[in-house]
């Protein structure tokens, strides 16, 4: 899967995703903005340049899988799936609305193209290990991608999975840590430091890469290198900025779950967007 990369086009699309996502969350009255905005370039690169997916056959056996272990970042996944044609663009405005098919956390039961239901932190990486292990048993060639959070990496189950994947040398598993350095209550370094993060994953038997999670070239070349690794699972530590593109909360703890009680708050967040675009619904 490789679509032609036109930088200006990707820049434009990234700005649209950020603007639409912020509108979706503001319409819903609240939501996990920061950790979705930090993933825009990574998720777009996965869906447009790296992963093999087919909106006409969302459950095709040979597709690459993506487990969004930090399930609260689901809006960025919804943008990718809507843009790729997995479901109508109209659905986007229904985030968290009564009876919606797009709940706050990623849900494989309702959303075509979502491979795993997530939302309770720490579990998605283990699910991804299971999917990767099954693929190996069945002799399938696809890869399983998994995005975990830095705050999520406080969970003990992440490290159970780290042991498992390292022991079983799951080289069809590529995990990405959205290292935006913030969790709900504070900066990760102040609350419960993950450092030295690279050394930790390496010690668990993983090949480790680091990349600038907002730089198209860095993301693409790192993921290509990750796909070439044999005999080990891969952890890509993505240095990102939480709430990137929404200046009133960018790189601030309060970006995690914004509250939008009224029109004034809506205007505050929307006016804070670095780039304004049209809404598709």
């Amino acid at each position: 899967m490789q679509e032609t990369f036109v930088r200006a086009e990707f820049d434009r699309m990234a700005a649209e995703w950020r603007y639409i996502m912020t509108d979706m969350i503001c319409r819903a009255g609240s939501g996990h903005l920061g950790g979705a905005l930090s993933l825009v370039e990574i998720v777009m690169t996965l869906y447009y340049r790296v992963m093999r997916t087919d909106p006409a056959q969302p459950r095709a056996a040979e597709r690459d899988r993506l487990v969004l272990s930090k399930g609260h970042a689901a809006p960025v996944l919804y943008l990718a799936l809507a843009y790729k044609g997995f479901f109508p663009m109209d659905w986007l405005k229904t985030l968290n609305a009564d009876g919606t098919r797009l709940p706050s956390h990623a849900d494989a039961r309702y959303v075509p193209g979502i491979d795993m239901t997530t939302g309770s932190l720490g579990q998605g990486l283990a699910c991804a290990c299971g999917a990767a292990y099954a693929a190996r048993l069945d002799g399938q060639q696809h890869r399983v991608y998994c995005i975990i959070g830095d705050g999520e990496s406080n969970e003990g189950q992440i490290w159970e999975s780290a042991l498992f994947a390292g022991h079983h040398k799951l080289d069809n598993l590529i995990a990405i840590t959205d290292y935006n350095k913030l969790q709900i209550d504070d900066f990760t370094d102040k609350l419960l430091t993950l450092e030295p993060l690279r050394d930790k994953w390496r010690a668990f038997g993983w090949e480790v890469f680091e990349m600038d999670g907002h730089d198209w070239d860095s993301i693409y070349s790192t993921l290509q290198a990750a796909r070439a690794v044999r005999g080990k699972p891969v952890m890509v530590i993505a240095h990102t900025i939480k709430a990137k593109g929404c200046c009133v909360v960018e790189n601030k703890p309060e970006s995690h779950n914004i509250k939008v009680p009224d029109q004034a708050a809506y205007d505050k967040f929307m006016n804070a967007m670095t780039t304004k675009t049209a809404l598709p619904y």
């Binding site: 795993m116 720490g122 299971g130 099954a134 693929a135 999975s161 498992f164």
Partner: peptide
Amino acid sequence: GVAEANMISLGAGLASEGK
């Protein structure tokens, strides 16, 4: 291994692939 939480979520991942 002694990792019951992992066993359960891993089982869900296996089940998602038809196991």
